[in-house]
Amino acid sequence: MDDFYRELIIDRYKNPQFRGVLDPADISFEDDNPLCGDHIHIDLRVGEDGIVREARFDGKGCAISQASADLLMEKIIGMHLDEVKQISKQDILDMLGIELGPVRLKCALLSLKVLKAGVYGLGEATDDLVEDE
């Protein structure tokens, strides 16, 4: 039954590998999902060459939002910021390996939204940052 909670998701939720804070950081951003009270804060250290050297997230929320943030941090280390900007909703779904309905999709995409708002240097994280097309 519980395909939704693949071992990977439960594991990353309970034993996150990239949870933490970077101080100082080159890029920091945070936002909430008002629907469920999920909260994600992200810190990045970026080299002169635009490559992400270190990435950490902090926050609270459901297994989907937290595991998604942990996996996303792992994914972007070593990526150029221009590549980070290209990460899509589908990339996150592929990374999680599950199908999500519209409500839980918001949980899964919160960390990407926060990440992109930070990388683009925006004042606010908005949904269109994580909408494909």
Binding site: M1, D2, F4, Y5, L35, C36, G37, D38, K60, G61, C62, A63, I64, R104, C107
Partner: peptide, 20 residues
């Protein structure tokens, strides 16, 4: 998290609400 409770319950057909 309450969302995870609701999601797992949904797999058993039990519809509850999670949130504020």
């Amino acid at each position: 998290h309450a969302h995870d409770i609701a999601q797992v319950l949904d797999q058993s057909g039990v519809a509850i609400r999670a949130g504020h």
